[in-house]
């Protein structure tokens, strides 16, 4: 009996100690969304349960190893205890009840993260190898490479992938959702804490997966409105005033930079520096001159004329709205890179 009392006390001490320790360390990042609250609440319950179960197994184990260790010179066997059906039933049924409770709580907290506000602001998010683009249909559809969000207002992100599977994750928001080619997935978030965060792609998407990040800025409603209006106006002006070369450069910055350098270094694709008008050796052994026709064709159908030493890129320009006009801008831009 003495053993059981000591172990019982030690289990409680160890459980409380483990939980207090984990809690003091602080396990989660800052909580910056309404949806994070039910997740952190469930997580905390789980940490309590884990601390208790950890103590429940480790304490009697360590106690046995210390107290029931074989004494020197004692080569006899221990007491013949085969089992105890009541105990076995107890430690089958009680955990069963506990996991059902947790499954219920899990479903409940999932439901909380999925609460729909019919007035949510829609932002279209496009993920591609290797970057993010955000489009604000409520403000004339301007595009941004930063995700600005107003605090305390639900946003519905409509996620779209251009090439492979990506995953939208802002650790401070907790929730994560994959982007699947060929369909639109949804992600609802209500930012609750003003600050600078980053969206980081969580599903491996190829070579530069690690760098597929974009700034997420949560500001108050007034600041957001100002920013959105400015962007809208700037987008309209840029559209009106830009030369084809400038438009091409803007497209380059968004879609092409990840693979094609403009300083001569090789990336996943060939550099654009000094490309125009020069001979290019193709994978099939032939050589072509990089004239307007070649560049147009190569951007339109990247698989058609692959340069020697490079793998065909799977970028689909039509899917991001790069049509003949835009390709013209890009070619104009490439011509400037001598």
């Amino acid at each position: 009996m003495r053993h059981y009392v000591i172990v019982g006390i030690l289990v409680i001490v160890a459980a409380v100690g483990t939980y207090t320790g984990l809690h003091a360390v602080g396990l989660m990042p800052v909580e910056a969304s309404v949806q994070a609250a039910p997740i952190d609440w469930l997580w905390n319950l789980e940490v309590i349960t884990i601390s208790f179960l950890f103590a429940l197994i480790i304490v009697p184990m360590v106690y046995s190893l210390v107290v029931f260790r074989r004494k020197k010179g004692d080569n006899t066997d221990a007491e013949h205890i085969e089992g105890n059906t009541t105990l076995e039933i107890a430690w089958t049924i009680i955990p069963l009840i506990v996991v059902v409770i947790f499954a219920y709580l899990g479903a409940y907290s999932l439901g909380e993260t999925r609460r729909v506000d019919p007035n949510a602001m829609i932002v279209k998010v496009t993920g591609f190898q290797w970057g993010w683009q955000f489009e604000y249909p409520a403000y004339g559809g301007f595009k941004s490479d930063k995700l600005y969000l107003p605090a305390d207002k639900q946003v519905l992100l409509q996620l779209q992938a251009l090439d492979v599977i990506h995953s939208f994750w802002v650790p401070e928001f907790r929730v994560k959702q994959d982007l699947v080619p060929g369909r639109i997935t949804e992600y609802r978030i209500t930012p609750s804490l003003i600050g600078d965060y980053k969206v980081r792609c969580a599903e491996i998407c190829g070579t530069s997966h690690a760098y597929m990040e974009a700034p997420v800025v949560v500001v108050d409603q007034a600041a957001f409105d100002t920013w959105a209006k400015d962007q809208q106006v700037a987008a309209a002006q840029a559209e009106a005033n830009a030369t084809p070369e400038q438009k091409g450069e803007k497209l380059y910055q968004t879609y092409c930079k990840a693979c094609h350098s403009i300083n001569g270094t090789a990336g996943n694709g060939p550099t654009w520096l000094g490309l125009f008008g020069h001979e290019v050796e193709l994978a099939d052994g032939t050589t072509v001159t990089a004239d307007e026709a070649y560049l147009t064709q190569s951007i339109k159908e990247p698989q058609s004329q692959v340069v020697q030493g490079y793998s065909p890129m799977a970028f689909n320009p039509a899917a991001v709205g790069i049509g003949d006009t835009e390709i013209g801008y890009l070619v104009a831009y490439i011509k400037t890179l001598k």
Binding site: H3, P60, M61, S64, R69, I81, N84, L87
Partner: peptide
Amino acid sequence: VATLWKGKI
């Protein structure tokens, strides 16, 4: 754990 309990380890 119950196997370890009261054994001669």
